[in-house]
């Protein structure tokens, strides 16, 4: 069970597809059900899309995590883009600054078990999400 770490550089909308496909494969290798793998792949797609729409380029990192009594997957999306000015607002359903549906972040939060965001205006954004195997 040695699923290492995968990095996907996000430079265009093509890379969104690559990132989520890799995420699905890794989720399968980590023993997630195909239903959960779909949730994980969808979350990765949203996170990668945020990078393309707001920062243009960035990176998605996928990693298997093993706690004392459970295991799961960690997805980290990071970019050096403009950052988010009001994180609280960005996490509210229906908020968007790029004319999209604006459901990205709160939706990702619902798809995954743990959600962490770090962002500073002008310095980029880092979103880390985890899902544990049931």
């Amino acid at each position: 069970m040695s699923v290492g770490e995968i990095r996907v550089e996000i430079n265009s909308d093509q890379d969104i597809v690559i990132a989520r496909q890799k995420g699905r494969v890794m989720a399968g290798e980590l023993g997630f059900s195909s239903g959960d793998a779909t949730l994980i792949a969808t979350a990765i797609s949203e996170l990668a899309r945020n990078i393309v729409s707001y920062a243009r380029t960035g990176q998605i990192k996928l990693k298997g995590i093993h706690g004392s009594s459970r295991s799961g997957i960690l997805v980290i999306a990071s970019d050096d883009g403009p950052g988010i000015i009001d994180i609280r607002q960005a996490l509210r359903d229906g908020f968007s600054t790029s004319g999209s549906l604006g459901l990205g972040l709160p939706g990702v939060r619902r798809l995954m078990d743990e959600f962490e965001i770090n962002s500073q205006p002008g310095k980029g954004t880092m979103v880390a999400v985890k899902k544990w195997r049931q």
């Binding site: 195909s34 239903g35 459901l103 939706g107 619902r110 798809l111």
Partner: peptide
């Protein structure tokens, strides 16, 4: 639309 995809979609609010 596949069942699993539908489930993920409604979680996203789509």
């Amino acid at each position: 639309i596949q069942p699993e995809v539908a489930f993920a979609m409604v979680q996203l609010g789509l």
